[in-house]
Amino acid sequence: MDAQEIADELGQRGAQELLVTPVAHLAYTVGDGTPRVIPVGFFWTGEQVVIASATSSPKVATLSARPDVAVTIDGDGTAGARALSIRGRASVEIVDGLVEEYVMAARRSMDAETADRFVEQCRKTYVHGMARIAITPSWVRFYDFGAGRLPRFLQELVEAAG
């Protein structure tokens, strides 16, 4: 998928709405070859999906060794029958203090006073830094079943059925 196709998918209004929701699901493969799918908080920078984690989290070592991932965002049920699927490669960087996008995501999802308390507690918790996991999309699809943006195979079935 080329950069323009990725931009077109991510530029869809519904995709933009999903990119500001608080939770996504991250899929990756662990060392024994089995898949994992976990819920994660994330922040969309406009170019990357950024996830923050403790440096001791098992996913940090796994993604450093096996960076191919998939992310799906489907909202909280109020978004209708919509989903954003992203494939890409993760890069892992250990940062001092808190991951900037982690703080921005918290401030986006909480009132100012609650976010301040949360960030202060996080500074005490992550004294040894955090892992910044940045996923650069190489493939993206936005599905809106109610509006007819279906996976290709399903669209072909619908068209064939008349």
Rank of each mutant, 00 (worst) to 15 (best):
T45L: 01
A81H: 13
R36C: 09
A105G: 11
A131P: 03
R66I: 04
R107K: 15
S53M: 11
S57G: 09
V92M: 10
V60Q: 01
G88V: 00
V140S: 02
V49K: 00
Q12T: 09
E159W: 06
Q16N: 11
C122A: 15
V69K: 00
V50T: 03
T125G: 03
V50D: 00
G162R: 12
V119L: 12
T72M: 12
M104H: 08
E5Y: 01
V119D: 06
D68V: 12
D32G: 11
S53P: 04
L19Y: 12
V99L: 10
T78N: 07
D68C: 12
T55K: 14
A83D: 10
D111S: 07
T21A: 13
Y102E: 05
F145K: 14
G41T: 10
Y102M: 12
D2S: 13
K59Q: 04
R82W: 08
A24G: 13
S53T: 09
T114F: 08
G75I: 02
R141F: 06
D116I: 09
E120S: 15
G11F: 07
R36T: 10
A90R: 02
Q12C: 08
S91D: 14
A115Q: 04
E9Y: 05
E100F: 10
I86P: 00
A81P: 11
Q155I: 04
Q48D: 05
P35S: 07
D68R: 15
F118N: 05
L150Y: 08
T136K: 14
E120M: 14
S138L: 14
G75P: 01
R36N: 07
I94M: 11
V20I: 14
D32M: 13
V92K: 06
G75C: 05
S91F: 04
I51P: 02
A147M: 14
A115T: 05
A115Y: 04
E93L: 11
P22L: 08
G88K: 02
V158G: 04
I38E: 07
A27I: 03
V92H: 06
P35D: 03
A7L: 09
V95M: 03
V95S: 03
R66D: 06
L154W: 04
Q48G: 03
V158K: 09
T72S: 15
H25E: 07
Q12P: 03
S91M: 08
R107D: 07
Q121H: 13
M1I: 08
G75V: 02
L98I: 09
I6R: 01
T34D: 10
T62S: 00
A81G: 11
Y126P: 01
G14T: 04
G129K: 04
I94Q: 14
V50C: 03
H25R: 13
R13M: 07
S91C: 08
K59C: 02
V23Q: 09
V158Q: 10
P58A: 14
A65Y: 10
R141A: 13
F153S: 14
A115K: 02
L18F: 07
R117W: 11
S91P: 05
A7N: 10
M110K: 02
V37W: 10
M1W: 09
A3H: 11
A27E: 03
A24W: 01
M110R: 08
M1G: 12
V119Q: 07
M1E: 10
D144S: 12
R66K: 14
D68Q: 15
T114C: 09
A83K: 02
R141K: 15
I133M: 05
E120R: 15
D76E: 15
V158N: 02
T72V: 15
K124G: 06
D96H: 05
R82P: 05
Q48W: 03
E93Q: 15
L19I: 11
